[in-house]
Write a protein that binds this DNA or RNA. Structure first.
Length: 864
RNA sequence: GGUCACAUAGCUCAGAGGUAGAGCACUACGUUGACAUCGUAGGGGCCACAGGUUCGAUCCCUGUUGUGACCACCA
């Protein structure tokens, strides 16, 4: 006997335990060669999972479960990410709160701290994944810095290096002065802020000045030229002349460069190659020296006049402006709105700085990645995202791989004292290389020092789909599961991750990493705000699971998996999901109360089913399964969930259960419980706990839904039948009850026809859903009662009181409108010629409506 | 500046070249052999605007307006 409500808190852990072994088995045992693989995006070890993670996870789990149910060897490859900078910040902040500085701790001890944090955060993440009902084998959990992954990363680096795609260069990069590391373009986000444009006078001759507009007056000390457009007639005479940099005695030349835009500012710009990306390029074109005027914390260095040394950018700016104003060199100040580059993770304002960094040459890799998608080897769902993907890859820049932090994969390059670099998998290998390079015995090789920089965390992520399967070894897993099938992720990491995985997979394995990229929508809060800790609108999935049950959360999320749009999730939505879980529970309770016992020998597809209602629900069920499967194939998980909800509520509960309350025959009981079994199989992938529990309670404690297939590939007879007709008649009767306000059961009068037999055989359930006392055959309706029409057939409800004509007026007016609309279509000759089939349907439809209308008018006439 | 979305019921959003849909909210009724975490019935829409294609457009195309996201630029 089932309790009042589904006790998820009690049952979920039991189901998890029961499923664990089977899940692992379906992966480990070679039952079939059909495989389905998803590499789960490894969450960062920066804390616990948020609702967005839960959302992605659930979508993946549904795809996995459905495939597993249908006999695939199903691998959801779990992992967690060391999250380079992000994790370093988290742990550094923890230490800072305890009053410990990184410097005092030292690199080695700091890394130990991060490892112990990794254990803590990793455990939390794993716990959450388990609680979410992820059908994955956690024994396969990988970490981007575990031994094998680390080896693979080094291998990948050396391969790219030996191929000449990785190089070290002094370039201008985005520098984070708080973390004191380079970051990639992608990690910089621009914020629109109010700011100022200052117009500064550069002295040309005694009384002649050139006015330059800038938002960065403190960088004038790094200026190496002023530039005008070569065709700008106003300034052609200035080219090659010299000006003096304000506040200094340094003189720079005026050059001509295409980059100058005569429309902008004064048409002349200052060239500061050390502190501006464009100026860096201009400087290169004109062989200008690069002058760095800042240190790694973005304080001015000894290259600037003494008064301004060691000041951070903001303070330096104030002081420079004051000095300029004082010497009359500040022409004017304008308020403007401009964008300022920030690093979201540290909150630092990014400084373009020239530093020594490792770069990956990406052009060729990108070309291959573009082609793979163009050729359809990788599909995006929804496919609009290919634009985003192409756009980025077609304008790709070299990837700055190096980070000046401690936590991460240390770059496998060793330096000899003379600066010669040896890229190798191990130090020993580097020494060997050095020995042969210097042509000395191993013991005479000068001391080598390893590169201190670590790799961008996305470097290891980009290798993830094949590293988790054993690469660089030619492993069995790689043969079996690679390329993987689907990647599920958010659009925000198409650049960071998706495109780089495709580039690296093509380079290292010669194949695409996956064939489908399912881009799931971004989860926002109820008001459409992005969830963030600072806004305080983050919903913890654990909280929701504890309060409403995991199935409720899973169902709610799936229902929202609408492609191509952000979704809003609030607690009230989860409440609705929970209500649906309760609905499943109550339907099951009804069947057990009715003592429907599962009979494995009963076949729903047997021609021996006699009861029309049973035939009807079986047909509905088959239809539902077909539809559900089609939605899955189109990656429309929202519609998949919707079809599950609709079938159970609108068809199984509202019609079938209501109708069979008066039927106690064996066939009906068998049908009811068998149809419900099919429902549970379909619903299982979204709501694994309640379905698995009900399966165990009502059907079998030996088998699990986890591996019960349900796809129906036979054909269905969709022709309308009398069951449907009578369900509609019942609905019409209920509607009349509602409109008139009848609360008692009444009697229905029917004029006998060739279908009397059907009515007699099905009277019990018709009476039930139409809330009738009796069904009586008559030859003619009397003047009393409520007469009504359903699809041409007239009925009469016994009713002695007078009813309002308004009820009929409304029906008459909608009928008339329908007829009008249909007539317009039918009279259209081109329509008749173009679509004769449809035209015929419309014609018959109108005929029906016209008959209904005529009868309705007649009834209305009788009534008044 | 470029790219991609989006504009449908009070709200959040589905939808298909030919009957406008759901959930929530709202109104009325209701403990009929599961279910008040419920049921039954009901009200509510020039499907942003303007053109075009079509026999027919809310749906396809173009433009306009508005909203959002991303990329780039920012002397």
């Amino acid at each position: 006997m089932l309790g009042k409500l589904f006790d998820y808190a009690q049952i979920e852990p039991k189901i998890i335990e029961k499923a664990r072994i089977i899940i692992a088995q379906t992966i480990r045992e070679n039952v079939t060669n059909k495989t389905f693989t998803i590499t789960l995006p490894p969450p960062n070890i920066t804390g616990s999972l948020h609702l967005g993670h839960a959302f992605t996870s659930v979508i993946q789990d549904i795809l996995l479960r459905v495939k597993r149910q249908h006999g695939y060897v199903t691998l959801g490859q779990p992992g967690i990410d060391h999250a380079g900078i992000a994790a370093q910040i988290v742990v550094a902040n923890q230490l800072y709160e305890k009053g410990i500085s990184l410097q005092s701790l030292g690199r080695e001890d700091f890394i130990k701290k991060v490892w112990s944090w990794k254990e803590q955060s990793g455990d939390m993440i794993v716990h959450q994944l388990v609680k979410l009902g992820m059908s994955i084998d956690l024994d396969r959990l990988r970490f981007t810095m575990d031994q094998d992954a680390s080896k693979a990363v080094l291998k990948a680096f050396t391969m790219l290096y030996n191929d000449g795609l990785i190089y070290k260069a002094k370039r201008i990069v985005n520098w984070d002065p708080i973390l004191k590391t380079a970051v990639s373009d992608l990690e910089v986000s621009n914020k629109i802020e109010p700011g100022k444009m200052w117009y500064i006078r550069y002295q040309l001759q005694q009384d002649e000045f050139i006015v330059i507009a800038t938002t960065r007056p403190e960088t004038i000390f790094g200026d190496q030229a002023l530039a005008v457009h070569p065709n700008d007639e106003r300034y052609m005479h200035l080219v090659d002349k010299e000006v003096k940099i304000p506040l200094t005695n340094r003189r720079i030349h005026i050059i001509a460069d295409e980059h100058a835009d005569p429309q902008k500012g004064s048409g002349i710009f200052k060239v500061t190659p050390g502190h501006d990306f464009f100026d860096f390029d201009v400087g290169k074109r004109h062989n200008l020296p690069i002058l760095s005027i800042m240190d790694e914390s973005a304080c001015l260095n000894n290259e600037v006049p003494e008064d301004f040394r060691h000041l951070p950018v903001a303070a330096a700016r104030e002081k420079v402006l004051a000095a300029l104003a004082h010497s009359g060199l500040l022409e004017k100040t304008e308020d403007i709105v401009h964008s300022v580059p920030y690093n979201d993770r540290s909150g630092a304002v990014i400084e373009p700085m020239v530093t020594n960094q490792w770069f990956l040459e990406t052009t060729k890799l990108a070309d291959a990645a573009i082609r793979a998608v163009e050729d359809g080897k990788v599909k995006f769902v929804p496919d609009q995202w290919v634009h985003t993907y192409f756009e980025w890859l077609r304008n790709i820049q070299p990837w700055c791989l190096s980070r000046q932090i401690w936590w991460g994969h240390q770059i496998p390059v060793w330096y000899a004292p003379n600066g010669k670099m040896f890229c190798a998998l191990t130090e020993e290998e580097a020494i060997q290389q050095a020995a042969s390079y210097f042509d000395v015995a191993r013991e005479f090789v000068p001391k080598l020092t390893q590169e201190q920089d670590v790799l961008d965390t996305w470097f290891s992520s980009a290798l993830w789909p094949f590293v988790t399967l054993g690469w660089p070894k030619d492993s069995e897993d790689l043969k079996k599961y690679y390329p993987t099938d689907v990647l599920v992720t958010g659009f925000d990491i198409i650049f960071f991750w998706v495109s780089r995985m495709i580039m690296f997979s093509l380079y290292f394995t010669g194949d695409v990493p996956f064939s489908v990229v399912y881009i799931n929508p971004l989860v926002r809060d109820e008001n459409g705000q992005k969830m963030s800790k600072s806004k305080g609108n983050v919903i913890d999935p654990l909280y929701l699971m504890d309060k409403y049950g995991t199935d409720a959360l899973r169902f709610t999320l799936t229902l929202q998996a609408i492609p191509g749009r952000d979704i809003r999730i609030g607690e009230s939505l989860v409440e609705c999901g929970r209500n649906f879980i309760t609905k499943i529970w109550n339907a099951a309770k009804f069947l057990t109360i009715k003592e429907c016992a599962y009979d494995v020998t009963f076949s729903m597809y047997s021609p021996n089913i006699v009861n029309a209602l049973n035939k009807w629900i079986i047909r509905q069920m088959v239809c539902f399964k077909k539809q559900a499967f089609a939605h899955l194939e189109n990656y429309r998980l929202d519609l998949f969930a919707q079809s599950i909800q609709k079938f159970l509520r609108d068809i199984f509960c509202d019609v079938y259960i209501e109708a069979i309350k008066t039927c106690d025959d064996v066939e009906t009981k068998n049908t009811a419980i068998s149809v419900f079994a099919e429902f549970l199989k379909v619903a299982h992938s979204i709501t694994p706990f309640i379905t698995e529990y009900l399966w165990e309670e009502m059907y079998s404690d030996k088998t699990m839904l986890l591996v019960e297939p349900w796809e129906y590939s036979g054909s269905i007879d969709e022709s309308p039948d009398l069951t449907n007709f009578w369900i509609d008649v019942a609905a019409e009767i209920r509607s009349l009850y509602g409109l008139i306000g009848i609360t008692q059961k009444s009697d229905l009068l029917v004029i006998g026809d060739e279908y009397n037999g059907f009515i007699q055989a099905n009277e019990h359930w018709i009476k039930q859903i139409a809330r009738l006392n009796s069904l009586q055959f008559v030859n003619k309706f009397s003047r009393d009662g409520i007469r009504f029409i359903v699809r041409g057939k007239e009925f009469c409800l016994k009713y002695s009181e007078k009813i309002s004509v308004a009820i009929f007026d409304k029906k008459i007016s909608t009928l008339s409108k329908d007829i009008q609309r249909l007539t317009l279509k039918i009279d259209n000759l081109q329509y008749k010629n173009a679509k004769p089939d449809k035209w015929n349907v419309d014609y018959k439809f109108r005929e029906q409506k016209q008959q209904d209308l005529a009868k309705m008018l007649e009834i209305r006439g009788v009534m008044t």
